[in-house]
């Protein structure tokens, strides 16, 4: 493999209403390497979901371009490029096409012309990964919120894409399940060398990602490792461990004054 990034977003802008001067996204650029994971954070309405829709070719940027694997995403190429990506949308209620859980997970595979035996094993495997195997014959509309999100996630896992995009796809899970699913994702990320983009409001999810993209009112505020981001942006609500570290420093405890992840903080405290 070459060392060109898997995904390259170059200076894209987008507005929903071209008669008005309100941009949902303006001049966004960033790269994502193979096997790298990125968390996207930002207030409500900052353009996160819009970005996800642009990345999957559901919307086209007004300016700028998106490259996947070096190929520009456009009308002609999007069908081919979509074979390499999977997305879970924000609203779990509207994502089901088929009338049973397993059929829904298989839907994407059917479209890729995967033979039956392979489909069967991929569907089962994906449902096991999200712990929904015993619900495989249920009607997705009769699941609880969190169960729906798991099924939607299985639909992407079964595809085994190179790029996975999650738009607030874990909000309805309880914290234990959320951590375990994030751990599963991280394992898949390194085993299969997939890239992950996850949009989230939960700052405590950040430790599961390699880097961070911060949006504010459609603009890129920062992109970097959590340490860099939270060092520069003191107004941004940090993960709990960092919040505590700042508090301790303010109270006069002798701690180094830079961002620390949870494990770093624990190590430092216990020295």
């Amino acid at each position: 493999m070459t060392d060109q990034p898997l995904l390259s977003v170059c200076d894209i802008s987008f507005r929903y209403d071209i008669t008005q001067d309100v941009y949902a996204l303006s001049a966004i650029s960033f790269d994502l390497n193979r096997g790298e994971s990125l968390a996207v954070i930002g207030d409500n309405g900052s353009g996160k979901s819009t970005l996800a829709r642009l990345l999957t070719g559901l919307l086209s940027p007004e300016k700028g371009a998106i490259y996947l694997d070096g190929v520009e995403l456009n009308e002609g190429s999007k069908k081919m490029l979509r074979r390499q990506m999977g997305i879970v949308f924000q609203n779990p209620d509207n994502q089901f096409i088929a009338t049973s859980v397993e059929d829904d997970v298989a839907f994407g595979l059917e479209n890729l012309n995967i033979p039956y035996e392979q489909m069967r094993s991929r569907v089962d495997e994906a449902l096991e990964l999200v712990d929904m195997y015993e619900y495989r014959t249920k009607d997705p509309s009769q699941l609880s919120g969190g169960q729906k999100q798991r099924v939607a996630l299985a639909g992407v896992l079964a595809l085994k894409p190179e790029l996975m995009i999650f738009d607030e796809a874990f909000v309805m899970l309880d914290p234990m399940s959320r951590r375990s699913i994030l751990e599963t994702l991280r394992r898949i990320q390194s085993e299969l060398n997939v890239s992950i983009i996850s949009i989230t409001h939960d700052r405590d999810e950040i430790e599961f990602f390699d880097s961070l993209l911060v949006l504010n009112q459609g603009e890129r505020v920062m992109r970097g490792k959590p340490a860099e981001v939270f060092k520069q942006m003191s107004s941004l609500k940090p993960p709990f461990a960092e919040q505590l570290r700042r508090d301790l420093v303010d109270a006069g405890m002798d701690l180094p004054d830079y961002y620390m992840s949870e494990s770093e903080l624990v190590d430092t405290l216990c020295k």
Binding site: D174, P175, M176, R179, D204, F240, A241, L244, E262, L265, V266, D267, L269, C270
Partner: peptide
């Protein structure tokens, strides 16, 4: 019960485990 912990307590447990 298999429920999660609030962040402060989770961190406390991590530290306790460590020391």
């Amino acid at each position: 019960l298999g429920i999660g912990l609030p962040e402060p307590l989770r961190l406390q447990r991590l530290i306790e485990e460590h020391t």
